[in-house]
């Protein structure tokens, strides 16, 4: 895609007759070269940003790892200030929130996508889809507050009476609402890109609309749908403020697999470290001086996690582009 206009820049030299100079004003050409370099350096900035990530994160993360007893990465819980750096707690917490969010987003998002792509009239879709997209624009801190003040008492605690005020389930639901538009819009685009021939063939065989939607259009659009789910999962993994406000055990959390309790995710662990008292000069148990540096380590972990998911998701996106 990127090279679309690439070949068109040099038509002048291609048609040049030997001996006749059609290359034009040299000043114009020099200016053209300068412009190209300026634009290229803008593109190079994005590479510099990635390099910045790698340098900023790995240096301090390695410093952290070399300064602690590596056994502490697998013990009891995530309490950086007392030298307990159990990665498992963060990863499992992240997976719980992401899992709950994906359950919400997959059901609501895919159903909305099927409705908008296959059932809704064009006018209805033109009104409904923007509203859905507005949902994606809600700042995450607002959803976090909503999860704590509304979802937790009105939904989670009415169903599970033993759930705490701060719980991973409420946070997961709110994150699910946040990523639903992502799933819905990308999946809807993928389904609408399925050629009508397929639908017509299905109807021709006497299939009903449900059957056509689920057995013909859905499988044909599967690359795009999977891509939307992967991108949404990657977003959920990195979501910070919703979980920080609605579920973050302040200070740290013991290893837990119970979504009705407060817990930590990789992202909230970073936010907690950044907002706590005496983080830079932290005292306390052994290795607590490394508490702040653990932030870089968790950051690197989170970066690697989302990068991996994005790469996989990207493969699927490329595949839809090639499919039809």
């Amino acid at each position: 895609m990127a090279g679309v206009g690439g070949g068109l820049g040099r038509p002048l030299s291609i048609g040049a007759t030997p001996g006749v100079d059609l290359s034009g004003d040299p000043w114009r050409q020099r200016k053209e070269r300068v412009v190209k370099w300026v634009l290229f350096s803008a593109a190079a900035v994005t590479l510099a940003v990635s390099a910045g990530f790698v340098i900023a994160l790995t240096g301090k993360a390695l410093e952290f790892l070399s300064n602690i007893d590596l056994g502490l990465l697998w013990e009891r819980g995530w309490f950086p200030r007392r030298g307990l750096f159990d990665v498992r707690t963060l990863v499992v917490g992240t997976l719980m929130v992401t899992g709950i969010a994906m359950a919400v987003a997959t059901s609501l998002g895919l159903a909305s996508a099927i409705y908008l792509a296959e059932y809704a009239r064009p006018r209805t879709r033109r009104i409904l889809k923007p509203i859905l997209e507005v949902l994606a624009g809600i700042p995450s801190i607002v959803l976090g507050f909503f999860a704590l003040e509304w979802i937790s008492p009105n939904l989670v605690q009415t169903v599970f009476s033993d759930a705490g005020t701060f719980n991973l389930l409420s946070a997961g639901i709110a994150v699910g609402v946040l990523i639903t538009p992502l799933v819905a819009t990308i999946s809807e685009d993928a389904m609408r890109a399925v050629p009508d021939d397929l639908r017509e063939a299905s109807y021709g065989l006497g299939a009903r609309k449900v059957t056509t939607s689920l057995r013909v259009v859905f499988p044909a659009a599967i690359s795009g749908i999977v891509a939307s789910l992967i991108l949404a999962a990657s977003r959920a993994i990195g979501e910070t403020m919703v979980v920080f406000i609605a579920a973050a055990a302040s200070g740290g959390s013991l290893y837990t697999v119970d979504p009705l309790e407060a817990g930590q995710t990789m992202a909230t662990a970073i936010a907690s470290l950044a907002t706590g008292s005496d983080q830079v000069a932290a005292g306390g148990g052994q290795d607590a001086g490394q508490a702040f540096n653990s932030l870089y380590f968790v950051g690197l972990l989170l970066f690697a996690f989302t990068l991996g998911l994005n790469m996989i998701g990207d493969r699927f996106v490329q595949r839809i582009r090639e499919a039809y």
Binding site: V49, G52, F53, A56, L57, L231, S234, R235, I237, G238, E239, T240, A267, I270, A271, A274, L295, Y296, G299, L302, F303, T306, L307, L309, N310, G313
Partner: peptide, 10 residues
């Protein structure tokens, strides 16, 4: 796709 909190570290 990089989470915003990681941009914060950057």
């Amino acid at each position: 796709g990089v989470p915003s909190v990681v941009y914060g570290i950057l």
